[in-house]
Design a protein around this nucleic acid. Structure first.
Lengths: 224, 224
DNA sequence: CGCTACTTTGATCATACTCAAGCCGAGTGG
DNA sequence: CCACTCGGCTTGAGTATGATCAAAGTAGCG
């Protein structure tokens, strides 16, 4: 199966500075074939040999770490055009899973180890992605360590809105994913969203997966 | 002035996989001269043009982000041998400050932009450092988002002990720095440390800046 | 000494968690 | 077509963890 909703969402969720058409799998012979992953399917696991890089063609991917007792922290969501699975060492340090249905391209990890004989542009893109992820990680750390639940959820909504390029956000991920991304519980995420709705800052669809920003300035005041 | 205590601490705090002697400023003509920074002195500020990379020769450096109301999150501490100030864009995204007295070498940022005409080993070291920082950021996010105060402090002590290569940890940073690194308040950090001391897991010096691990397995059980 | 900065300790409080129940939409089978 | 179930989401009540406010202790340094 290949949920049309998931793909429709992803198709207008291209990240900053990357043209998905120009760098798609078909245009780059280096890339391996596109492969489909179903909801919650594992792409690679923490501790597995890091032999490949991956690039999202459609859908959304989460990368996370899990403690022995099951507590989980999602470090990032990756949307169409994003490269993930970049590692310094021989093993993946996070687990990657599809949030919904997703199409993922992959290619052999060689760029940084043998820099001479491969596509220089690709190597540069990989390095730039790593640095972008580091930037985002630094931004996310201040959210996790120093922001209140209200500020966390407001920041999350504004970031999603920016990435989605529209006033209505089709959330591809569950409350559980959002909670593990923001370092909260699902109850607190839910309560905060209804609180925003009561204040007229957002509008929740009946299915609760679509969010329309009604008062973006109000959210911006709340984000800290 | 150049406190001998700070330097003595730093001299045995070399990070994993980097020989400080072999890659010191004097051995690399690319590096600029060593410069001294005093306690809390700013090395670069968030938003400033990112024109140089920096490498710690002695002492400890913190990189942090600060919210408008003064809340601060320290994203990392850098010790001797560590490179910091690596950016993707044109501006620094974090502020870097010396924790105590420190000696810092710097070099012009050119490696990633003009990869052909510069030291390949240096470029590789810069990329490896960026990826190492990303690894640490991912590890730190699960600490910030999902660990209790007890687990955070236990993890911090074990990490410092690993970096310091000795059973006694000479903490170069204040309680305030530790709190802003772990996403806690100074009171909680202090209470947790005295709690560990009462349980016999650690031993605090009278000056409270030196910590000896008495029962490392106990801390390891607490760290998650 | 006595100031200052830092740390510890105590009492109280609030934010977000836990436990629990109920709701709603989607899918399933009678 | 309707009842049923299941998963995800919401709502509520009570609680606990860590924050806040306040004060006292301690080291370093003039």
């Amino acid at each position: 199966m290949y949920s049309s909703a998931a793909i429709a969402t992803a198709s207008r969720a291209f990240p900053i500075g990357i043209e998905p058409g120009a760098t798609s799998a078909s245009a780059r012979p280096v890339l391996g074939p596109l492969r489909h992953y179903g909801k919650d399917e594992e792409i690679f696991a923490e501790g597995a040999p890091a032999s490949r890089y991956y690039k999202v063609a459609a859908g959304v991917v989460r990368t996370c770490k899990i403690l022995s007792d099951g507590r989980r922290q999602i470090s990032a969501f990756h949307v169409a055009g994003d490269i993930f699975g970049i590692e310094r060492g021989a093993e993946y340090r996070v687990t990657a899973e599809a949030v919904g249905d997703a199409m993922i391209a992959s290619f052999r990890r060689c760029s940084l180890e043998e820099p001479a004989d491969i596509d220089r542009g690709l190597a540069r893109e990989v390095v730039a992605t790593a640095l972008l992820n580091l930037e985002r990680a630094q931004e996310h750390m201040i959210l996790l360590g120093r922001k209140s639940a209200t500020e966390k959820v407001a920041t999350f909504l504004l970031n999603m809105a920016k990435r989605m390029e529209g006033d209505a956000i089709e959330l591809p991920m569950s409350r559980s994913d959002i909670a593990d991304y923001l370092g909260l519980t699902i109850e607190t995420v839910s309560r905060t969203l209804t609180h925003f709705e009561r204040k007229g800052a957002i509008e929740l669809s009946t299915a609760r997966r679509t969010i329309r920003l009604r008062d973006e300035p109000a959210l911006r005041r709340l984000e800290s």
